[in-house]
Design a binder for these strands. Structure first.
Length: 819
RNA sequence: GCCGAGGUGGCGGAAUGGCAGACGCGUCGGUCUCAAAAACCGAUGAGGGCAACCUCGUGCGGGUUCGACUCCCGCUCUCGGCACCA
């Protein structure tokens, strides 16, 4: 075997070396006592499933690029990592492989995953690693549960909940997608009446909505999704008396109090508590049958808009408080008990759903809002827009917006209704009937009822033995913390989204043994400056984390009300048109990539493959272009003498062109890393390398301009190709002690003068061209024409702005001004 | 149905209202080689011209502007989200 030439770029030789140096020097350790400005660069901590692909890696590479640049720019960077380590896949995998404990499975995967990250040269402050399934973490998840309980934000209630028959657990509303389980999209969730633990996120609905305006650096899409999820509606609650039942009334919610005169019937949800009461004897049998059927129907069937609306009359009547009219009360599935008050006034003329229902059951339709353009009487569809009130007694002639206010005022004055705001958001169901999660720290005592486990008795340890907690008496048999009598522990565990709603705070003081996080340190690092992760968390994790942050703000533990200042959702990596994953058989793992062409080429290719926010198709062919680029850079930096001057048509080297290119590259690459436009950042670096090569081939001297180009290229390359950059930087040195760009932290300064200078030349050329046209058109001398052109204020402004094309336009105008 | 994002070469994709197609892949030609691969050099939107150059080109139709991939109006297709929320 022949030895490789001394100066060849061999990634496999240099990468382990630099990974060792960075680790030894602790270059990515964040100091709590630094005087430098802080930068908190966070990537969503992963579920350690063990099959890391280049798709995951792309996300972490992006975070690493930013961390490295910010470090080189002089920030104290917090770039931590951890593991969302509780959850069902561990249990499922453990069951499948027979006898492997979820903990063992999870910890093994963490080791594998960590190795891959390190191979890619991704640097974290590993001293701050958190693992949500370890007692020193979930102890504080339990502590926070108790804090929520103390603050009245955790409660236990019986309610119809979503049940996944496959995972055998309840689910949060956010985990139900089109009536199906988020983890098994082919499995319909069932409705079950169960007593469960909830977090009162609805108390924060208005703040979660209003504070969205602080999140101007979040993707528009995510803000829209959260806004819709919270779903605020303004309207009124109105009480309708029940005919024949003294003192009994039914409260409805409407967003259109201005259509109150158009209410021709009322509809109750089948689950509404007053159904039995308002039903007359002659209708009772049919109502009972209908309600029973509705309860049995699956959520999917009930919620389908395709489905024809059904309903039955109760025989009872309600009285419209506004006009005293008696309207029939119906029961229908299309009214949901979980929204508003579970009862509506039906205004078929101005609501599509009520219209459909009225048509089907021949109920009266009365127009009370006339469209502005006239042409009423159209009874083929509901008119849902604004208009002028008609058939509305004393309110006739008002526009519907004014009518809204007047009717609300009237209702409030008479004490039969009031303005109200309703949200689509429901409380967060946090209990799960699973083993592999943080036990909910409460005890049920026959005497004292629900008793929280005292905070100093935490953690409530998960038993070693892998079996349902409810079937493990050694776990649930306990004594009441209050009275000491025999009691039973809660055997449900918490949703893993509870674990992940606060992990970014734990990084501030990961070894704190007194509290979940040290408020002083958390406030020092928070808010997160950049948060990077998948858009699949647009609602779930991001909404919950915002909720937690606000609760902790209210508890005086945090000074921020929003956790994540800037959010970025990277696209997914696909292969053969499918999202990459090991189970789908189309995964490419990072170590395959590193083995083939090295970590740096792999990293750069991950960034260059397409816009970071877009889904990209993985394709090995493009990787070669990046490898070629790195070899070319290596040669330009370390062996420029090997690049020959080529004769012929090639333009002679111009130092001004190179100087300008260097300056522009600094500006463009810095801005692009900062703005997470990594694909174009790579392109700019390739352009610089191409310009440098042209310069040498054109016979350019290796002088100060050249040296600055070399240094700039090496430095700007560091965040994306750190190993090769560090190696080149060291070799450029005088052979003294190992030099590390990352440790020395120096980012190139942008030289605005150099960037602008050659553009001035271009402008003078343009002026020359226009001067010719001016002289031709006016007969002025060349000097006079040039002076005229350059004297224009607008020309000067354009010159100062470095916009030669504007100058061309301005001067064209100038020509037109001259007769 | 409602909300949101988007449509640019053979492909991935660039373009604060100012030379459309940067950068890369692929393809073609060349150097090197007995040959091939690799590497390196050159060409590469379409049509026309020996040439300098010319014409047409960013989903479709209008508009604003000296100038439109970019802004406005209408349409169309694709992709994402929500979907009986009163």
């Amino acid at each position: 075997m022949s030895t490789a030439p001394r100066n060849r770029y061999v990634p496999q030789e240099i990468e382990p070396k630099w990974q060792r140096i960075w680790a030894d020097r602790g270059v990515m350790k964040a100091s709590d006592k630094s005087s430098k400005p802080k930068y908190y660069d966070l990537v969503m901590y992963p579920y350690p499933s063990g099959d890391m692909t280049v798709g995951h890696a792309r996300n972490y590479v992006m975070g690493d690029v930013l961390a490295r640049m910010k470090r080189m720019q002089g920030f104290e960077v917090l770039h931590p990592f951890g593991w969302d380590a509780f959850g069902l896949p561990a249990e499922n995998a453990a069951m499948k492989r027979g006898g492997v404990h979820p903990k063992e499975w999870t910890l093994t995967n963490i080791v594998k995953f960590t190795r891959e990250l390190k191979m890619l040269g991704i640097l974290y402050d590993w001293d701050r690693e958190v693992t949500s399934c370890m007692p020193d973490y979930y102890r504080w998840t339990q502590w926070l549960f108790l804090l929520f309980y103390e603050r009245g934000l955790a409660y236990r209630a019986m309610s119809p909940v979503n049940w996944c028959p496959v995972d055998k657990t309840v689910l949060a509303n956010e985990q139900v997608i089109n009536g199906r389980c988020w983890r098994h999209l082919d499995v319909e969730v069932e409705k079950r009446d169960l007593e469960q633990w909830f977090f009162k996120i609805t108390d924060y609905a208005d703040r979660l909505l209003n504070d969205m305006q602080l999140l101007d650096k979040w993707p528009h899409k995510v803000r829209v999704m959260q806004t819709n999820w919270i779903g605020r509606s303004e309207g009124a609650e109105v009480d309708f008396a029940v005919a024949g039942h003294q003192g009994e009334s039914i409260r409805i919610f409407t967003t259109r109090p201005d259509t109150l005169f158009g209410a021709t019937f009322m509809v109750l949800a089948p689950e509404h508590p007053l159904v039995e009461k308002v039903t007359t004897d002659s209708h009772r049998a049919r109502i009972r049958e209908y309600v029973a059927k509705a309860r049995k129907a699956t959520e999917i069937d009930r919620m389908s808009t395709e489905r024809e609306k059904t309903g039955v009359p109760t025989g009872g009547f309600a009285i419209n408080p506004l006009n005293g009219e008696k309207i029939p009360i119906w029961v229908a599935e299309y009214v949901l008990m979980t929204y508003g008050t579970g009862a509506i006034m039906a205004v078929p003329a101005h609501d599509e759903r009520d219209f459909d229902f009225a048509r089907k059951y021949n109920l009266p339709i009365r127009e009370v809002i006339a469209p502005a353009g006239g042409a009423g009487d159209d009874l083929s569809a509901a008119y849902v827009g604004p208009g002028v009130m008609v058939n509305s007694g004393q309110f006739d002639g008002l526009d519907s917006k004014t009518g809204f206010d007047r009717i609300c005022a009237w209702l409030e004055e008479k004490g039969v209704g009031k303005r109200a705001v309703k949200y689509r958001l429901r409380d967060w169901l946090v209990s799960r009937q699973r083993y592999w999660g943080a036990p909910i720290p409460v005890v049920y005592c026959e005497v004292d009822g629900i008793v929280p486990v005292p905070k100093d008795k935490l953690p409530v340890l998960l038993p070693e033995e892998y079996k349902p907690l409810a079937e493990n008496p050694e776990f649930w048999r306990t004594t009441c913390p209050k009275c000491g009598r025999e009691a039973r522990r809660e055997t449900d565990t918490m949703d893993t989204f509870v674990d992940s709603s606060w992990y970014f705070l734990r990084y501030a003081s990961p070894h704190d043994e007194k509290e979940p996080f040290d408020p002083e340190l958390a406030n020092q690092w928070m808010p997160v400056d950049q948060y990077t992760g998948g858009v699949e968390h647009a609602i779930l994790h991001l909404l919950y984390s915002r909720f937690f942050t606000k609760v902790l703000f209210d508890a005086g533990m945090l000074k921020v009300t929003e956790p994540f200042m800037r959010l970025f959702n990277q696209g997914m990596v696909k292969r053969f048109g499918q999202v990459m994953s090991k189970s789908a058989g189309n995964g490419v793992s990072p170590d395959e990539l590193v083995e083939k062409q090295g970590a740096d080429a792999g990293r750069i290719y991950e960034l260059f493959i397409g816009p970071p926010e877009e889904d990209v198709e993985w394709n090995d062919a493009g990787l070669n272009g990046v490898v070629k680029f790195l070899h070319r850079v290596w040669r330009l930096v370390l062996e420029p003498e090997s690049i020959e001057v080529s004769g012929g048509a090639r333009a002679a080297a111009d130092p001004a062109v190179l100087r300008r290119k260097v300056a522009q590259t600094v500006k463009n690459v810095t801005d692009d890393y900062d703005g997470l436009r990594f694909n174009t950042a790579v392109a700019y670096l390739m352009e610089l390398a191409n310009t440098m090569q042209d310069y040498l081939q054109g016979g350019g001297a290796r002088d100060a301009v050249w040296d600055s180009a070399v240094q700039t290229l090496v430095k700007l390359l560091n965040p994306i190709g750190p190993h090769v950059s560090e190696e080149m930087w060291e070799r450029l040195g005088d052979g003294g002690p190992t030099r590390s760009l990352l440790a020395d932290a120096s980012w190139p300064e942008f030289d605005a003068a150099a960037a602008a200078e050659p553009q001035m030349t271009l402008v003078v050329q343009v002026a020359g061209k226009v001067r010719d046209r001016l002289t031709a058109a006016t007969g002025l001398s060349e000097e006079q024409a040039l002076a005229l052109a350059l004297a224009s204020e607008r020309v000067r402004a354009a010159l100062n702005g470095g916009r030669p094309s504007k100058v061309i336009y301005v001067q064209d105008k100038l020509i037109n001004l001259v007769p």
